[in-house]
């Protein structure tokens, strides 16, 4: 079976985010970029399914600027077989991404699409769900365990109260949670091989999708700095403050 893994280029999780001085967004110039960590988990899961003999081809796809090619190379170096870059300039909103991925899915015919549950840049947590709706496929979101059983898929989900297991019919959509797996390092021999793996370039027009944003960002602000706390002298004072000031107890 074929697995499609969308990967997004985002600011590296180690980087301290700064807001642009004009408030138009987050500073991206000269900032280290990397693959969205949830997408790394998605790539890893796909590779494990391939190593287990369940999958035979892994296609990584990224929607973004030319430099998103680097993110695709990372996916190839981890073990994806080929890659597709849908080149866009500027912001692409989750719905447009989902429409483009639907186009890719229709062209490639994967049985499974594994996405990160969200990208750490805008934390939208929408693409996987929208894609499932557009394709009319089953979805297992926030996966902490994925098991393929013939034509069916068992997905263990991390929900507030604990773990929920859903049984899906393929083709299906899975979105990854943090504890699904520990992604591997792109190994040196695979990095060398990645250069020779195919990377196709496409445009949104190839899929007939209009990616013009529908939302307007009014303002981007730094979060308020944490206000200094107070020191309490005794447990009695603490209880009193929790009761009368904070109103918690």
């Amino acid at each position: 079976m074929k697995i499609l893994v969308p990967v997004k280029r985002v600011v590296d999780y180690n980087v301290k985010i700064r807001v642009r001085s004009d408030g138009s967004g987050v500073e991206l110039a000269n900032v280290k970029m990397a693959m969205n960590p949830f997408d790394e988990i998605a790539v890893e899961e796909a590779i494990r399914l391939k190593e287990a003999g369940v999958a035979d081809e892994i296609i990584a796809v990224s929607i973004g600027p030319q430099q998103a090619q680097e993110t695709l190379r990372t996916a190839l170096a981890m073990g994806a077989d080929r890659a597709i870059l849908i080149k866009t300039d500027g912001v692409v909103e989750p719905l447009a991404v989902a429409k483009l991925l639907k186009g890719v899915a229709e062209a490639e015919g994967p049985s499974l699409i594994i996405l990160g549950k969200q990208a750490i840049d805008d934390d939208a947590n929408q693409t996987g769900q929208m894609l499932a709706a557009l394709l009319g496929w089953a979805q297992g979101t926030f996966a902490s365990k994925v098991e393929v059983e013939g034509e069916r898929l068992k997905v263990t989900r991390e929900v507030d109260g604990g773990l929920q297991t859903v049984d899906l019919k393929l083709p299906a959509i899975v979105t990854t949670d943090l504890r699904l797996n520990q992604p591997r390092y792109a190994s040196l021999p695979n990095i060398m091989k990645a250069k020779k793996k195919p990377l196709d370039e496409k445009a949104p027009a190839d899929f007939g999708v209009d990616v013009t944003p529908r939302l307007t960002v009014l303002k981007t602000e730094e979060p308020q700095g944490r206000k200094a706390g107070v020191k309490v002298g005794s447990v009695a004072e603490l209880v009193d403050k929790l009761k009368n000031e904070a109103g918690i107890i």
């Binding site: 190379r73 990095i191 060398m192 990645a194």
Partner: peptide, 15 residues
């Protein structure tokens, strides 16, 4: 090159 950058990234992550 892209390849060199990936090698740097992997080695740094490992370290």
């Amino acid at each position: 090159t892209e390849e060199q950058q990936l090698i740097v990234d992997t080695t740094r992550a490992f370290v």
